[in-house]
Structure formats: structure tokens, C-alpha cells
Design a protein around this nucleic acid. Structure first.
Lengths: 342, 342
DNA sequence: ATGCGCTGGTGAACCGGATAAGTAACGTGA
DNA sequence: TCACGTTACTTATCCGGTTCACCAGCGCAT
């Protein structure tokens, strides 16, 4: 049984294709009674205008693209992405836009996917995540002239609209909190050094500690394994830190376990802070002090910006947007440092 | 600058639209030299056939749909979905199919989304996850006549092709292992009771324990909070279990913390097994014994089945597929029960 | 020389909608 | 009673591809 087309509806209603089209789209040109009859028939036989046929008339594809450039293993473990996606989604589906997703392994692939989608008319816009230092995607996107929103700091977004949150402020708040507790040697277990936000956090961290605490930063690939290894290395050094800030929660949990394995008590011997709060931070023992933010809302903002770009709406929705700064949520993993090192 | 169309390519190459089409699609009807010239020009001006125009000629949309019916919070915390998606993805992108994703909050929405996508010609097929008991989506999908693959047990899939893994076997292996260690009172902290796989695991668990161990099952919503609460309740009962099997790893971690809060040692006082292995199981202390399986491969199998359905390929790819059974990976969270209760 | 098949194309119809232009019927004011 | 403006449509064209029917030119056997 073929899918019904506009012609089927027109025939059953005893009108022309044009009339059906007007009726469907709320255009003037049909009487209310005819419109109702047409819509009833469309409903009855389950007709929906074919999106390809619509798109052919210069209309939009009503789809935006998102390519994620991370290995499956890391991706699965990062609540961040799933929450971001569901936030993006909620905004898109409210406006009847679909999200097309692709998981890729490198940036060359990612750019070529977007290029293809765009050239094929499959997407109206794109969302760029995980901004790198000197990200090659930015000039590419600018040249492509594909409406796009960058989820990341404007300093790396070139002329593209960006949605970001103030990591700098969050870092300062965290360091300030730890210093206030009495910590004078603070370490940071950071993510991939080629990611822009890692560099920005590194810089902010160094700056925040400047003059008030010794500081050291170790880079990892975000996995629990590397988080644990970095922690062991930090804790076995002569002047070990009394507090460690982790760039994601899986590393924070791994670091917690590593510390406990070394017979260190958290928070009495070592304080731990996790960046990005997730249920995980709450279920471990002790629950982790974390930098929480509403990632879902973050994604929704990005989507809203993108839709404004796509539909050409002016207004305040069109510009870059700074989302709320992550709030430090103190839990039981942070406390003053042990007295002998104070 | 308008996107180039087939007419632009034809004009530049000095041939007709038809010739360009034949050249592009590897059809006979153009000489090799002309084909090369046309393709070179297409490449140069960055032309890609508009997917909507192609789809209009009865061709496929080259897209499959996936609607996830879970709240954002649970979703973010389940590495399962992200891994499943990236597995599906890898298979799809290898065959140049796109994945359209939608996060919905209930089944009615989910069905209506699929119905819309299908009627609008946006998707060629769909993947159904999280099968419920008496799932209303199954008859709907059968009626829609939309090519689809169910990720879940065939007993609930009706006439739809399903891809599943033998939970029954995994449960028996787990219970067998715990009984062999000497456990005689085993609890299970299960997921949502309306999910089919929960019911099947419940049944298998009861059956596996029958005659060899006392058993009890508690249902939760998969969150760490409920996992912890269930654990506390189980452990504070008079004849508390000596081993608990959790339906996901976030609950297992939460259960571990809850037990430790009650001054119970894992594994000396209590053994813990997590269903579905993830980096999380490895980074906590002690690392958790878990049921591991390759979720990404699971997703890839589902995608392959779906593509076989969509393209109408016969052969062994078309039927239902039983994926490998989860393997029990013993780690330090399981041991013989304490002697006083043996 | 003629017929035949093959190669390498061309031109036009078609897919399913949107939309501009055209038209028939009707009411209305002068 | 007729020009005029509405209303409620119909008709035709277009979007960017695919594909079918057709055709010119060429080599080749007859």
C-alpha cells in the first residue's frame, strides 16, 4: 500500500492539488468548510506532506546536524554529551526540527560529513562541540557559510555564534573555596590539552592560584584509568597536593579510589572537586564536591541560537550567549587540609 | 552564492542533465572520458546531488530513526545508550546512512514521531529500544509497515525482527557463580518493572535461585538514589543477603557506597555484581564484578539487520539475531560470604 | 548500398509538493 | 445593467534530480 500523496487527498476531496496545499498550510484561498473537509480527509488517510518534496521548493530541511568526534568509549562515559543532546533535542522538537547525529573519529571526517550534509541539503544548520585550539573546523564552517553555533568559548569561535559558560569564573570560585579552607598546594587533573576549554581552564587555574597556592596541572584523556594514574603520581610526590580538581567526574571517582588505595582519607588527607556534576558524584563515598551546571539548558540555548540563525530571526536570540557559570556544590569530599601540612 | 545544481554541472561540462546523472551514478550511457570530466567538474564546484530531489524519485531517504523514551537525567547516566548509538552509527555511516534522533518522554509521543517521520518520507526504517511488557509500539509498527528492528527479546517483538542477547544465560551464570562461592541468600536490585527485560531477568533469577538459594528482587527506576535506598533496606533486614546483583552500574556503585556506610565490607561481608560493564565498574574501590558485553557491537548488529530490511536484501542478515551472552567478569567485589552466616 | 547493433549521448516526463497567475461566480455600488 | 472587487478555487510552472524513449553516428557483416 503506497503512501498517500497530495493527489490522493485532492481526488478524494474533489478539489485540486493547489487547494489541498493551501488548506494544509493555512493560506487564504480556500473556504473554511473546504479546508476542514480537506484536513479531515488528510487525517483519515494519514497523509503528511512529503518532506523531500517540500524541501525541493526551497523550503528548509527542518533538520540540524551534530557530529561528535570522540571514541565510543569516552563518549559512553560522558554524561555531558547525552545531556547536551537531550537539551538540544528538547528545543528542536518543540519547533519540529529533527536532529541528525553522526559519531566520527576525527575532524577531517567531521568536516566532510557536514560538507556533505550541507551540499545535499540535508541540514539547515550545525552545532560544533569540543572546540580545539586553532580549530580547523571554524574557518571551514565560515567558508561553507553553513549556519552554525559553537558550543565553546567565543575566543576560538571566530565569526561563528557561540554559546559558552564562564569556566574562568568557575575555576576562580573553586580555587577561592579551596584556599579559604586552608589549602596551599592544589593540583588539577585536566582533560585533553588540545581542547580549547582545557587550555582556558589551565590558564585560569594558574592565574587563580598565583600568589596564594602552589599549583600543578596534569593532562589526561578523560578516562578513569588516566585519572587514577595521574592521581597516584601526584600523591606519591614529596610535596603532595592537599586538594585535586578533576576535569570530569569519572576521573574524580577514579582519583578518589586511587587515594583511598594509598590509605589516604578523603576529605581529611585530600580534598577532591569534580567538574560537571552528575548522579555519579552523589553516589560515591564520600559524595563529591562538584561544579554543577544545567547542561541540558546549555544545549537548549545552543539549539535556540541555531534556530534563530537558520530562520533568519533577528532579535536577542541571534547573538552569542553566555550561559550561567557553573556553581560549586560543596559536599563531603572537601575539607580543610590535614594540620601537619598547614 | 547559491548551491550548485546538476544544471550548473551540465552547463559547465557542455552536456545534458541526464548525462551528469548517469556519470554520477555509475550508470552506462556516458563514455569514460566524459564521466571523468563531469565528475571532475562536480568535484571542483562542490556539487552534491540534493538528497530531497533524489528522495522524490522514489529513492530512499538514507536515514533511519531512533526515538529514545527516557528522561534526560537517566539517559545521561546510562553509558548503555551512548554506546548503543555509537555502534548503530558506525554501521550506518559505513553505508552512508544518517541517524535521526529524538528524545521523547512517552510512548504515545514516540509512536507519533515515527509515524510522522515515516509519512513524511524522512526515514526508511526505525530502531525500537526499551521494550515494555505488552509494548503498544509493536502492533503500531506492524500496522505502519515501517521496516524496523527491535533491540530486545523476541518474545515481545511480535512479528518484528529482533536483536537480543541471552539475559537468561547471563543470570544463570551469575547465580551459579555466587552459589559456587557459597552464597545462599542473594538479592537483585532490578530496574523498571514495566520493561520486558526486567521481567525476563526477574523470572530467570527466581528460576536460577530455586532450590539453591533464598532470593528477593527489588524494583527501582535505575537511579543511584533508588539503588542506594534499596540496598539499605535489603541490608537492614533480619536475614540480609550476602550478595546483591544490580541491573546497572550506577546502582551498583550506589549500593557499594550504601553498604560501606553501614560499615559492611565489600566483598567480605557483601558481594556485589553489576549488570553491564563500563569504565565506572573499574574505577571504584573495590572494582566491581560485572556482566560485560560489547554494546557497541550489539547496536551495530541491530543497524545491519535494519539496513538489510530496508534494502530488501535477503540472506542471513535479514532474520532475528541473538547476540553473544554477557560474560561474567569477576573482580574484587565478589568473594565467599562471611563464615558466620554460611 | 543497406540493414543492424552498439555507443554516447539528448530531450522530456515525472516524483510531490508550493505558489504565481488565471478564472468563474457572485455581490455590490453607481 | 455593467464595471469592479472579492472569494474560492483551478491551472501551470518550478524545485533538482532520475529515468525512459529516442536518435545520430559509426563500424561491420551482408
Amino acid at each position: 500500500m503506497r503512501r498517500p500523496t497530495i493527489t490522493d487527498v485532492a481526488r478524494q476531496a474533489g478539489v485540486s492539488k493547489g487547494a489541498v496545499s493551501y488548506a494544509l498550510n493555512g493560506q487564504p484561498g480556500v473556504s473554511e468548510s473546504t479546508r476542514a473537509r480537506i484536513l479531515a480527509i488528510a487525517e483519515e488517510i494519514g497523509w503528511r506532506p512529503n518532506s523531500a518534496a517540500r524541501a525541493l521548493n526551497g523550503a528548509r530541511a527542518h533538520t540540524v546536524g551534530l557530529a561528535l568526534c570522540r571514541p565510543a568509549r569516552t563518549l559512553g562515559m560522558e554524561p555531558f554529551f547525552m545531556e547536551l543532546i537531550s537539551g538540544i533535542e528538547s528545543e528542536l522538537s518543540a519547533r519540529s526540527y529533527a536532529l541528525t547525529l553522526q559519531v566520527v573519529t576525527d575532524h577531517r571526517q567531521e568536516v566532510s560529513i557536514y560538507r556533505r550534509w550541507w551540499a545535499e541539503g540535508r541540514i539547515d544548520g550545525a552545532i560544533l562541540v569540543d572546540l580545539h585550539v586553532d580549530d580547523p573546523r571554524v574557518p571551514e564552517f565560515e567558508a561553507l557559510d553553513l549556519p552554525s553555533v559553537v558550543v565553546g568559548h567565543p575566543s576560538g569561535a571566530g565569526s561563528l555564534v557561540s554559546v559558552w559558560s564562564d569556566d574562568d569564573g568557575a575555576v576562580h570560585e573553586t580555587v577561592g573555596y579551596l584556599v579559604a579552607l586552608g589549602h596551599r598546594r592544589i593540583a588539577r587533573v585536566a582533560g585533553l590539552p588540545r581542547l580549547l576549554h582545557t587550555v582556558l581552564r589551565d590558564r585560569a587555574f594558574a592565574q587563580a592560584c598565583e600568589g596564594v597556592a602552589e599549583h600543578v596541572t596534569v593532562h589526561t584523556d578523560y578516562t578513569g584509568e588516566e585519572g587514577a594514574r595521574a592521581t597516584r603520581r601526584l600523591l606519591s610526590s614529596a610535596d603532595r597536593p592537599t586538594a585535586i580538581v578533576y576535569d570530569n567526574d569519572i576521573m574524580a571517582v577514579a582519583g578518589l579510589s586511587a587515594a583511598q588505595d594509598l590509605r589516604l582519607d578523603v576529605p581529611d588527607d585530600l580534598s577532591i572537586v569534580a567538574w560537571d556534576d552528575s548522579p555519579l558524584s552523589r553516589v560515591v563515598r564520600p559524595p563529591l564536591t562538584a561544579l554543577s551546571r544545567d547542561i541540558s539548558a546549555y544545549g537548549a540555548h545552543a539549539a535556540r541560537r541555531l534556530l534563530a540563525l537558520v530562520t533568519g530571526e533577528a532579535g536577542e536570540e541571534a547573538g552569542p550567549y553566555e550561559d550561567e557559570t557553573a556553581r560549586l556544590t560543596p559536599r563531603a569530599s572537601t575539607a580543610p587540609p590535614p594540620s601537619e601540612v598547614r
